[in-house]
């Protein structure tokens, strides 16, 4: 018997839609039968989000080929989690350039001009240069990577991202040895993002950063898509960073510049309130400076009686990332 490397599974098969719906339907039936009146009552209350998975809106995955990405399997993908429905991932967003309500980005991000798109590489590099989005898409094979996504507001999702390790891109950038941090800048145009100063006083453009070794960790993903398709605008099209062991705001969307620097860069939420939002902002159930407890989280897309779960240190990615913080007091460097 031939045992080779895992087959290249396109993400459409990883979460085969019909399979998914069948599973949902069965699960739903069992739940209903088992919990009887209680579940029916819950359904009547409508918080029963199981129905969401068979909601026609979850099947808006585009059929057209130009949004489909060719992807390969990745051993770094998270297993054993139920994926959050596509509808929820694309209609519950924090993308304040398009408004501060969760539903705003889905409504307003349509005008984000994702083509042509370039990413500037500058700072401590051998030679500054600019990458076109087409070059970035071709740089490495695109991998399906399911990650847990934990927002500092104490909700979470499980998202099948598409991309490759940021480290692969950084190698192409030729950073100098003096580069100790990487800074990211998000797209900003007040004429397109007309909602950026409505109900918010934030210093745009959105700026984030990582320590070099964090950026080089293989989990840190240069992300182009989700559910096997190009990123919807509200999720940070056409290219973003995903750092699964940190709170969601450490994963900047729609990036236009990557800057290698010697000193710890300023970051948007740290600028807003250094007391509440540290530079590191690793998912840590033991430290909560923000108004919300970080001990538990609400998993979006599950029925309400099944949503609350315990938050894991480093969002459950401790095996891969804990070494980065060895000897550091994480209550001080939160």
């Amino acid at each position: 018997m031939f045992i080779g490397k895992p087959p290249d599974i396109p993400s459409s098969e990883v979460t085969s839609e019909s399979e998914y719906l069948r599973f949902e339907g069965r699960r739903r039936f069992l739940r209903r039968a088992a919990t009887g009146a209680a579940a029916l009552g819950a359904a009547a209350l409508g918080a029963d989000r199981l129905a969401a998975a068979i909601d026609p809106r979850t099947t808006v995955l585009a059929e057209s080929n130009d949004t489909q990405l060719k992807t390969v399997y990745s051993p770094l993908t998270t297993t054993g989690e139920r994926l959050t429905p596509f509808y929820d991932i694309t209609h519950y967003n924090n993308f304040y350039e398009f408004g501060v309500s969760k539903s705003d980005p889905a409504e307003h991000a349509g005008d984000l001009p994702t083509r042509p798109w370039t990413v500037r590489v500058e700072g401590a590099v051998k030679k500054p240069r600019t990458f076109g989005i087409e070059d970035l898409l071709k740089l490495r094979p695109l991998e399906d990577r399911v990650y847990r996504h934990r927002c500092v507001e104490a909700w979470s999702m499980v998202i099948p991202w598409v991309g490759y390790s940021l480290s692969e891109f950084i190698k192409q950038c030729d950073p100098l040895p003096s580069a100790k941090y990487v800074e990211f800048l998000s797209y900003y145009d007040a004429r397109v993002e007309r909602w950026s100063h409505q109900d918010a006083t934030i210093n745009w453009p959105y700026h984030e950063g990582l320590r070099m070794d964090e950026a080089m960790n293989e989990l840190t993903l240069l992300t182009f898509g989700l559910y096997g398709q190009v990123l919807p605008n509200q999720d940070g099209a056409p290219v973003r960073i995903v750092v699964p062991w940190k709170y969601g705001f450490k994963s900047p969307k729609s990036i236009v510049a990557v800057r290698f620097v010697e000193r710890q860069p300023r970051t948007t939420w740290n600028d807003q309130s250094p007391e509440e939002y540290g530079f590191y902002s690793n998912v840590n159930p033991n430290v909560d400076r923000v108004p919300w407890s970080q001990k538990t989280e609400r998993r979006i897309g599950l029925p309400f009686y099944d949503q609350l779960r315990t938050t894991l240190m480093f969002n459950g990615y401790g095996n891969q990332v804990a070494y980065l913080y060895k000897g550091m007091n994480l209550s001080k460097y939160y």
Binding site: L45, G46, A47, R49, H91, Y92, K102, R298
Partner: peptide, 11 residues
Amino acid sequence: AVTNNLGPNPT
């Protein structure tokens, strides 16, 4: 609630 239309985070 009845039409299951309370958005991604009904709570």
